[in-house]
Design a protein around this nucleic acid. Structure first.
Lengths: 195, 195
DNA sequence: TCCGATTGAGTACTTGCCGTATCTTAACGG
DNA sequence: CCGTTAAGATACGGCAAGTACTCAATCGGA
């Protein structure tokens, strides 16, 4: 209407995803509607439906659009500090979205989209198993037995469980997760062959 | 209409919750509507709104209504078998509901209702920390150091995480959870004072 | 046994959003 | 410069949410 120029392609896409984030901030996940996004982005519903099949797809795209994919690997000089650093990183990564939004996406999404959501944090899991655990082993903090994938993802699993089902973990809770579960578990597994 | 007698109180409540379970079975969580439930239960929407504030409240009530609260404590003669038995019990407890329904309730519910949902399985957590771990300690499978609550709930947390975010754990996955995480963790914690 | 309070039943209405169809026109590509 | 693509605008049918209003059946107490 006012803008004589008509947006297309990626430029349009970016502005729509920005509008989604604005709607998310103002009305929450349940309040994100195709009508509202179209209004805010000054476009129309058909344009949205052509690109995104559901609200979950739309919102997840809007969030991952501005997520920094490069993970600075924490190196605090010790396994405990590295694990705590990783969980802090994970928290800062997700507090942009908000727990309620994550719950909404998880509920609305099909199996494929849930996988896509999890992949946003699986970079962290890989980070744990590769550099952090490797460095700890070199330091002598861990034994020689390889850590299985399920074990190395335990920190992230405990964090996500809290975030989705109870409340966002604070600093003390993160330390509790690391001290009373992750460290004893990893020490034990890395020194003893599995039964 | 046909029934000249008008239902009241708990009798009415029970039939409504039965209708909710029927709608849940036929149309899934997202397909449970106040209109549909009222039609199936041969009552009216205002009656439902007077009792339940949201679909999440309604469905959770319908599910917990027929949940057997008495948990038969598994006693297989060993910690490993007891833990596996507990997770099997948990799975049978939740396959009535279905993962999609649980995700829906988690997303729709407020903080209080989520707590109520978790309490449905916290009986299992208590069961772990009390009898199972106690028996294992008496058998000499575990050391003398007390197991903190977070550690004793790790089996349930890993199970719930799978159920909600990836897929319902099968027998192999349950054994993996127990063998590669729970047993090493509990052995370690029970023998070593926490750092 | 009757009366008043409660509560279930029936109906109707507004509102909001979904998802799609249709049409026009601006932007782009050769 | 023309044909193709895709954005913009509008409108529609449908469904469910949530509420308001009415009426009648049941229950409890005096």
């Amino acid at each position: 209407m006012d803008p004589v120029t008509r947006r297309r392609g990626d430029a349009l896409r970016s502005e729509i995803l920005g509008a989604v984030r604005d709607e998310l901030r103002d009305h929450g996940y349940a309040g994100v509607t195709y009508d509202g996004v179209a209004r805010r982005a000054q476009t129309s519903k058909p344009v949205l439906y052509r690109r995104w099949r559901s609200r979950a797809h739309l919102v997840l795209d809007a969030l991952s659009d501005q997520l920094d994919l490069v993970i600075p690997p924490p190196d605090t000089g010790g396994l405990r500090g590295d694990l705590i650093g990783l969980l802090h990183l994970m928290r800062s990564r997700f507090e942009v979205a908000g727990a309620q939004t994550l719950r909404g996406i998880v509920a609305d999404a099909d199996s494929d989209l849930r996988s896509a959501l999890l992949e946003l944090t699986d970079a962290l899991v890989d980070e744990i198993s590769r550099s952090v655990l490797q460095r700890a082993r070199e330091r002598g903090e861990l034994g020689p037995v390889p850590i299985p994938p399920l074990v190395s993802s335990v920190p992230v699993i405990l964090f996500r469980h809290d975030l989705l089902l109870t409340e966002e973990p604070n600093d003390e809770r993160i330390e509790e997760i690391v001290d009373s579960v992750c460290l004893p578990l990893m020490h034990a597994v890395s020194r003893r062959p599995l039964a």
